[in-house]
Structure formats: structure tokens, C-alpha cells
Amino acid sequence: MIVPLNHILLVAAALFFMGLSCTLVRRNLVMILIGVEIMLNAAGLVLVAGSAFWQQLDGQLMVMLIMAVTAAEVAVALAMVVYLHGRTGTIDVNTFKDMQG
């Protein structure tokens, strides 16, 4: 591979920033979850690049664990989205700013 490590890091940083800005700026619950997905993938790219750079498998193993954690997180979060939509009829996060606890 002829790609320098810092170029991969730059791509991953840009992806992470886009996910973060999506999470911060959008007011739609589904779009916020999509932003979280983008951030997790950017982290995975850094881990795989580090795994190749240092010729160790641990980074790739960590990506596998991240994928499992993401699947669990998405299952619960989307169930919660469906639940909130059933209760209030909207998934705009401004609706839920009065929530306590």
C-alpha cells in the first residue's frame, strides 16, 4: 500500500467531523442516529489503518467488537424512536426537550 497513514487519518477525521456536525445540527432523531453511525465508521477506519500500519490484528478485532456494539445500540435506539413516535407522533428532538430524568 502506497498511501501514507496521515492521508487515511485525514479522511477519517473528515468523516468523523461530518458525522458529528450531523448529530449536532440536525433535529431529526433518525438523522442524529445516522450521524452516530458515520462517526463509528470513521473510528473503524482509523482502527483498520492502525492495524495495517503496525501489522497487528488487534485493530481489526476492535472493529468487529464496534460493529456488534453498534448493532445493539441501533436496535435499542430505533425501538425507542418507534416508541416515541407512537407516543407523540413526531421525531423532532425539540419536542422532547421537556423530558426529565
Partner: peptide
């Protein structure tokens, strides 16, 4: 990253 860190300028080896 682009200017200072010399370690990350190295290419990622084949793996």
C-alpha cells in the same frame, strides 16, 4: 498531522 508528525508520513505497509 500533515506538517509535524514524521511517523505518520510513512506509507502503510502491505498487510
Amino acid at each position: 498531522i500533515l506538517t509535524f508528525d514524521p511517523a505518520s508520513q510513512a506509507s502503510v505497509p502491505l498487510f
